[in-house]
Design a protein around this nucleic acid. Sequence first.
RNA 1: GCCGGAGUAGCUCAGUUGGUCAGAGCAGCGGAAUCAUAAUCCGCGUGUCGGGGGUUCAAGUCCCUCCUCCGGCACCA
Length: 511
Amino acid sequence: MSSFFLTTPIYYASGEPHLGHAYTTILADVLARYRRRAGEDVLFLTGTDEHGQKIQEAAAAQGVTPLELCDLMAGRFEEAWRDLGISHDRFIRTTEAEHIGVVTALLERLRDNGHIYEAEYAGWYSVGQERYFTEKEIGPDRVDPIAGGPVQRIREKNYFFRMSHFQDRLIRHIEDNPEWIVPATRRNEVLGFLNQPLADLSISRPRARIHWGIPLPWDADQVTYVWVDALTNYVTASGAIDPAAPGPTRGFGDLRPSRWPADVHLMGKDILTTHAVYWPTLLMGADLPLPRKILAHGWWVVGDTKMSKSLGNVVDPLDLREQFGTDAVRWYLMREMPTGQDASYTPERFLTRYDELGNILGNLVHRALSMVVRYRGGTVPDAPSHDLAAETEAALDAYRQGLEGYRLHAGFAAAMDLARTANGFVEAREPWALARAPERADELDRTLATLVRTLAVLAGMFEPVAPVKARELATRLGLADVPRFAELDGLEIAGLHVTVGSPLFPRVEAR
RNA sequence: GCCGGAGUAGCUCAGUUGGUCAGAGCAGCGGAAUCAUAAUCCGCGUGUCGGGGGUUCAAGUCCCUCCUCCGGCACCA
C-alpha cells in the first residue's frame, strides 16, 4: 500500500481558530480523505505551535502558566476541527516531550555539521509583535507598522544557521523540480526572492528575555527561536528521528521506517518563504531529504481586503455552518476558490454554490430514489447498470486529475458535472413514461439500476468534501459505507434496499 | 523602484505545444416535462478575447509597446 503524508502548518496557540486556519485544514482534510478513498495509507498532521514570547506574556497576563494556556488553546483548535469534520491522524503540540527531543537532536545535528555560529543580532524590536522590523518597515517614525506600537533597539547574542550556504543548492532544486512549489506564480516569487543574496537565519533568543522555549543543547542561556522549533514538527511526527537513540542512528540515516519526507506541506501564501526557503535549507543542513511538494494557497478576501478578525465587519463563512451545515461550507470553500489563488467571499456566491448542491446533486438523489421506491418497491432491480459508464469514467478521470493535481475546484466541478449528466439521463429516459408501459419494464429496470450505480459513484466522489452527506447517501442506497474507488467497478447494487428520506440539502428559506 | 501575474459574454471564470477557440456555470428570456427539494431538461449570446503595432498562410494563443488591476520584495508562525 502506498503511503501519503500531508501537513498543515501548526497554528500559533495565542489566538482563536479562524477562517484562515480552517481553510488550510479543510483543504488538507479533503486531500487526506481522497487519498484514503484511493486506498493509500495516510498520515494527516496538524497541531499547535506553543512556544514564544506572545504565549509567555498572554499566560502571565491571565495569571496561568504558559502550558495551561496552551492546553486551553490546543483544545480550542481540536474542538474547531471536530466541528469541521477534520480527520487528522495526529495533532502535534510543540510542547510535547517527543518534539522537544527531536528539536534538540536536530539542533545538535546542525551544529555538528558546522552550520551554526554565534553572532550578535541587532535590530528594531517590537514587543507587541514579538519580532524585529527592518528600517524600511518602521519608517521614519520608528513605530511598528502593524499595530503602531513602539519599537526599541535591541542588540543581543544569537546563534545563526548558515542558510546562505545552501542558497545555490536550493535554487537548483527549485529549477530542477518545476512542480515542487505550486502554484507556479508562488514558485516564481521564491526564485525572485532567491535572486538576492540569502542572509543567515537567526535561530535563538536570549533566555533572559524569552524563557518559554526549547533551550539550545549547547547553551542553556538561549532558547530556540520559532523556525527551528515550529517547522521541525513535521519531522517529529514523521518518526524519522528518535532522540533517545545514540547520535548517528537517530534517524538521519535510514528513513525507511519513518514517514519522512512529507508528500506535501500545505500553507497560506503568507508563510511560503518559511516553508520554501528556511525549512528546506534547514533540512539540507541536517542531511534530510526535502518534502516532495509545497503548496501555498491564497486568501479569502472581501472586496479587496484580506479577511481577518481584526477587520471586525467580516461575515465569516464558518458562521454559515449552523444554517447550512458543515458539508455545505466545506463545499463552498473548496469549490469556489481555485486552489492556490485568492477568492472573494460573498453571501450571494455561497447561496449559488449551496443551490448547486441541493438542486443538482440533492435533487438527483431524491428523484432517483423516489422512483426506485415508487416503481420497484425500494429494491434495486437486477438489471444492467452501466448505461452511464463512459460518462462516469470520464468524470472520474477529470476528478482524479483535479485532486491529485491540486486543482480541487476543477475536480469537484467534474463530480458535479456527473450529477448534471445523470439528471439529463433521467430526462432522456423518462422513467415515469416507462412505468406506464409494462412491456418496457426492462428499460425501466436498467434506468433505475444505472442511476443507483451513478449515485454510488457520486457518494465516493463527494465524500472527501462532504463526508457527512456522502455517508448519508450511502446509507440511503442501502450500502454499509461509502465505496472506495477500487470497489466501484465491481459494486453489487442489485437487490439493495433504498430509502428516500428528507432532502440531503434542504432549501433554506428566509434568505 | 525592482521582479512577476492578470485583463475573454451582465457576473465568476475555462481556453495545453498558434489553425471548428470564441466556450462553461450563474443570472436573463423562451419552451418541455411532471419522477423530484417550483427542483430538472432543452433552446437563445453581433462578446472589437484591455488599447495599438508586429511576426505568420493562420494569434485570446508568439513578439514589442501603452493602459488598468493584483501579487512578491526575508525572521511576518
